[in-house]
Write a protein that binds this DNA or RNA. Structure first.
Length: 509
RNA sequence: GGCGCUAUCGUCUAACGGUUAGGACAAGCGGUUUUCAUCCGCUAAAUCGGGGUUCGAUUCCCCGUAGCGCUACCA
């Protein structure tokens, strides 16, 4: 299928450099990329940009792809994950890893060299550093002074020999047109004009023989027939250079769409130090993939309706580059919490138990010891106040610990009651629970009828009975209701445990 | 320093050039409730400043201001 703005079939790519984790900003850009592609039933390609050999991280690509996969983002072509969880190349435009495409770049740089769009540069790092220092001191724009741009053929040849003898290689720079302007048309930012005179003669091939991003991205996007380049806003300033490279080759450039930045609360570009930035971190804390996707989609994009909860399918249906806005968006984890809690509430108890198990186990709970009916009942009670899965063990610890409940007599006594009455009420409760039928003990509703009847019969206050009951069973000032808690503990730990907890409370008074 | 981008409640964001500037999160208040939470109701909260264009600018143009991004043989 084609996008209305262009007649080529939609082919997009995600082009990570394997340097570590999945930054949430990249994930959001990639999400938009993915939604756009699926919306237009295009092909989504994964290309590995490992041209910076000094920053490679082992296993980074696998890790990134796994994280994206758990978010529901998958690829059709390129270096993709196979069923065994390993990288495997698929597609006819390979290789899809840039370090395996060195010969290709060599061929293409020669074309640029031949038509004088590129030139060898023999300047040393020292000269470049010095130059920059001077320019900054003189408050001049810091850019290459094109020292090697007009070297004669003889000069180039002799320098070449010199370098070869020393076992070095010169870099190749792009010869930016000295005059005129370059217009970049962006699907979200519109038209941007640049005077060619302010553009730097970018290095295309580094001295280690690897291409720079700027060169590889143009060659590969062209060769892989990418129709839309969807990337982060930080690439805007280098886009005119890319456009000029396409022009130097005589190629038609793809459509560009830059996505607004994701910001820290202080509006700077999202970074570590100010909180989590890796998708893995959010996943680890128990944010649901569906919630994460939904939340990220709304950072910089809006369907222009009042609906806020969107499934991935709905996002695909509604997503449109035209609805992406230009200004950066602050990542508000408070709203993420809210959205996550909405998704948690929508889960069935059985699903939630499965999701919760790893968190309970990490907290030392042997989940195999408890019935699934019990675990589901627990989850049902905590659903309403759960923001993220990682909070669950702390919230539910009294359902698993049969010892170690700390009962503070000060707290045990309801504020409008006294120790003596509380002691009395707990004893009465014990008597009541000793003889209450199992099916009543198992049901919060039936239990409520019985206990309330008992309160009325003894002419007591609700609070003077219910507060100590709940506190005695949980050891917590804040928790779900007393009938629910009692019935649940009865279900999982038995009448004996209920009686013990009441006894323990009685004993501190 | 140069180049570029952006600008609506605290935050995410709506609003064919004409609306009492809407929604959501957060906040506050109230109801339900023994507690917390859920749920329900209500309240407060914004068009960066200045010029144009126009009968009429949040919206279009210009200037300013602020913020951010880029300015590597990193991506």
């Amino acid at each position: 299928m084609t996008d209305s703005s262009n007649n080529k079939p939609v082919r997009t790519r995600f082009a990570p450099s394997p340097t570590g984790y999945v930054h949430i900003g990249n994930a959001r850009t990639e999400l938009f990329n993915f939604l756009f592609t699926r919306h237009y039933k295009g092909v989504h390609v994964l290309r590995v940009e490992d041209t910076d050999q000094s920053r490679l991280v082992e296993g980074a690509v696998e890790n990134m792809l796994k994280v994206l996969k758990t978010l529901g983002i998958e690829f059709d072509e390129g270096a993709i994950l196979n069923d065994a969880g390993h990288i495997e190349e698929r597609g006819e435009f390979g290789p899809y890893t840039q370090s395996a495409r060195l010969d290709i770049y060599k061929d293409y740089i020669q074309k640029l060299l031949n038509n004088k769009s590129a030139y060898y540069c023999f300047c040393t790092q020292e000269r470049l550093d010095e130059l920059r220092k001077e320019q900054i001191a003189l408050k001049q724009p810091a850019m290459y002074d094109r020292h090697c741009r007009n070297l004669s053929a003889e000069e180039v040849a002799s320098k070449q020999d010199e370098f070869k003898a020393a076992g070095k290689s010169p870099v190749v720079r792009f010869a930016i047109p000295l005059e005129g302007e370059t217009v970049v048309t962006d699907l979200v930012f519109g038209e941007m004009k640049y005077q060619n005179a302010v553009l730097d003669d970018q290095v295309l091939i580094k001295s280690d023989g690897f291409p720079t991003y700027h060169f590889a991205v143009v060659v590969d996007d062209h060769l892989m027939e990418i129709s839309h380049v969807i990337r982060g806003e930080e690439w805007i300033p280098s886009t005119p250079k890319h456009v000029l490279i396409y022009k130097a080759f005589g190629w038609e450039a793809p459509q560009f769409a830059h996505m607004p930045l994701i910001l820290n609360p202080d509006k700077s570009k999202l970074s570590k130090r100010q909180g989590d930035v890796a998708v893995e971190d959010f996943l680890k804390k128990g944010y649901l993939p569906e919630a994460l996707i939904n939340f990220m989609a709304f950072l910089g994009w809006n369907p222009k309706t009042e609906q806020e909860i969107f499934s991935e399918q709905e996002l695909i249906e509604h997503f449109d580059l035209e609805k992406v806005n230009k200004s950066g968006a602050v990542l508000d984890t408070v709203k993420l919490d809210w959205m996550n809690s909405e998704y948690i509430k929508a889960k069935s108890n059985a699903e939630l138990v499965e999701l919760a198990k790893p968190y309970w186990q990490a907290a030392g709970v042997d989940t195999e010891k408890f019935s699934s009916a019990y675990l589901e009942a627990i989850v049902e009670l905590e659903k309403a106040r759960l923001k993220k899965l990682a909070d669950l063990p702390e919230l539910t610890k009294y359902f698993f610990n049969t010892t170690g409940l700390q009962i503070d007599p000060e707290i045990l006594v309801w504020k409008k009651s006294n120790a003596k009455d509380t002691h009395q009420n707990l004893l009465l409760l014990q008597d009541l629970f000793r003889i209450t039928d199992d099916d009543v003990m198992n049901s919060p509703e039936k239990l409520e009828v019985i206990v309330k009847g008992f309160i009325a019969e003894h002419e007591l206050d609700n609070g003077s009975v219910l507060w100590p009951l709940r506190y005695a069973l949980t050891g917590e000032e804040k928790s779900p209701g007393p009938f629910e808690v009692t019935a649940t503990i009865f279900l999982g730990l038995g009448r004996e445990e209920v009686m013990n907890r009441l006894q323990q409370a009685i004993s501190v008074l």
